[in-house]
């Protein structure tokens, strides 16, 4: 049962700063990389995965409880720090589950180490300039409007965030600042990533909410086309935050994909 999952919180010294890590469950290691808006400490999606896997949810450097490295400049720097963490933990055959902005980080990790990972799951991943449409610009909308636009159904937003506290607003401002520090220009994508995805041996599943207002699905199509071995799954009546809006459905997709031979 999800409520019985026990999460261990640790802090790992990586690249001169402290990286916050939540870990639960056992089995194949699965690294979950959170969104640009950070992550709540617990989510049903994480708990469900932890029933079947050794789940690792780090806070990106500068986000949440992880320290901010003042020198950090790019999403590739974040990818390198997470790779460093996995190496320190001595984990092999890790599967990567990247959510939105975290999907971009996962894709970067995979290109940097194209034969290392067991499975790659990209969910509404940023990182590629969509051939049709644009990645939503959070700089010009409010702290509430941006995350709300990431849900197809506002009841799902309420279920996760409820009446948003000032602490949460403050956290979103910090997250936004980190996005600016690492992904300001070009905004939320890399011009070189599409050219490097072809080297990745890891089988990939690309998941998109059919009402993703943050990242157009055309970016997902580019991921599928550029990776050697990838397929697309669309989640119906769902926005950008598939993990928060349709946690069971996403967990099922991940479980099946990671466990498949």
């Amino acid at each position: 049962m999800p409520s019985s999952v026990t999460w261990n919180e640790t802090s790992m010294p990586i690249a001169g700063t402290k990286l916050h890590l939540m870990r639960a469950g056992s089995g194949r290691p699965v690294l979950v990389l959170h969104h640009d808006i950070g992550t709540p400490d617990r989510l049903p999606f994480y708990d469900t995965l932890a029933q079947s896997f050794d789940v690792l949810v780090p806070h990106h450097p500068g986000w949440g409880k992880s320290e901010r490295p003042q020198w950090l400049r790019s999403v590739r720097d974040i990818a390198a720090m997470h790779s460093w963490m996995l190496a320190d933990l001595g984990l092999k055959d890790v599967s990567l589950v990247g959510l939105g902005f975290g999907g971009w980080i996962a894709a970067e990790m995979a290109t940097q180490s194209p034969a290392t990972y067991h499975r790659l799951v990209l969910v509404g991943a940023m990182g590629i300039n969509p051939p049709d449409g644009y990645i939503a610009d959070q700089a010009i909308v409010s702290y509430l409007d941006y995350p709300k636009a990431g849900f197809h159904n506002q009841e799902a937003f309420m279920r996760v965030y409820g009446d948003v506290t000032t602490d949460q607003l403050e956290q979103w401002d910090i997250c936004r600042e980190m996005v600016f520090r690492t992904a300001w220009k070009p905004y939320m994508y890399s011009q070189t990533l599409p050219h490097l995805l072809g080297g990745v041996r890891t089988p990939a599943l690309v998941v998109w909410g059919d009402d993703d207002k943050h990242v157009p699905k055309s970016a997902g199509d580019v991921y599928v086309k550029s990776l050697r071995n990838a397929r697309l799954e669309t989640v119906a009546a769902c926005g950008h935050y598939v993990d928060m809006e349709k946690p069971d459905e996403l967990a099922r997709l991940v479980l099946t994909f990671v466990n498949a031979n």
């Binding site: 403050e170 910090i174 936004r176 600042e177």
Partner: peptide, 21 residues
């Protein structure tokens, strides 16, 4: 919009809480 005048990271962290409200 207030976030145009004070985008994240632009203003002093000491004023963050008051500003987000």
């Amino acid at each position: 919009h207030p976030v145009w005048a004070n985008p994240a990271g632009y203003f002093s962290p000491s004023g963050r809480r008051g500003f987000v409200e």
